[in-house]
Design a protein around this nucleic acid. Sequence first.
DNA 1: ATAAACCATGTACTTAGGTACAGAGTCAAG
DNA 2: CTTGACTCTGTACCTAAGTACATGGTTTAT
Lengths: 137, 137
Amino acid sequence: METLTIGRVAKKAGVNIETIRYYERQGLIPRPPRRQSEWGALGYRHYPAETVKRIQFIRHAKELGFSLKEIAELLSLRIEQGVTCGDVRKRAEAKIADIDTRIKILQRMKKALVNLAKECKARGPVSECPILEALER
Amino acid sequence: METLTIGRVAKKAGVNIETIRYYERQGLIPRPPRRQSEWGALGYRHYPAETVKRIQFIRHAKELGFSLKEIAELLSLRIEQGVTCGDVRKRAEAKIADIDTRIKILQRMKKALVNLAKECKARGPVSECPILEALER
DNA sequence: ATAAACCATGTACTTAGGTACAGAGTCAAG
DNA sequence: CTTGACTCTGTACCTAAGTACATGGTTTAT
């Protein structure tokens, strides 16, 4: 188990070092253990390997339009003592519904683009915007 | 055909008036015709009905994580003179690939959440973060 | 044991995407 | 033909999500 300093984590996850510290301040990644220095100051952060995955997850979710606040909610969804199972289920199901909506909109967009590419062969210039189909119902 | 002033468009599309003017400045919606006033100043903007759809499209795409720049590209994808068919096809296909990636990631997230909800019944408290599965390959 | 390469903290700056006025002009209903 | 609701331009301000230092402490390779 190699020692993961903040710089290594940043490189592996493909983000800026400052971003990691920022996420820590925002509570998106847990404060990692720090080796204490001689006279009491906190030493370097040392991360568990899992942190890299966590940051990549954040990156993906961000690209999909989730805010950091929403991402924090997703990351905190887990079964542990002090949280009732029903609560977890309810929150998970709400997120699932949200995700389903997003998938549907993306599929409509895709369909519009596929049609566009198809039409391109078939007939000549059209001037209205074909993408707008994507949001009819 | 009722006359669509900026305020009506804003209400129908569910956005702020200033947002519409902002989108106009950013080139996301075309400058609408303006009735000229007596002594030369520009009058109110009058929008075609289609504008409402266009703004709703922008809203949806934004929620899915597309930047306004990307949205402008999507909206400008159309078959018209001066643009070769091959070019349109190529750009459309790139967008389709992008959308497919997003759909896949969302489906992985969904799967992780569905599993979480399922496990919740089956066994007791777990402490690792089950959502992280979502990004294993 | 010392320089080169990292890291820590705190504060300031940046960019995207809006929002909020102020002050003045426009429209339409009575 | 006036009054109240609406719109215009321009500029300033705001939030989220970082990014960039400056200054100083920590590691590690030589």
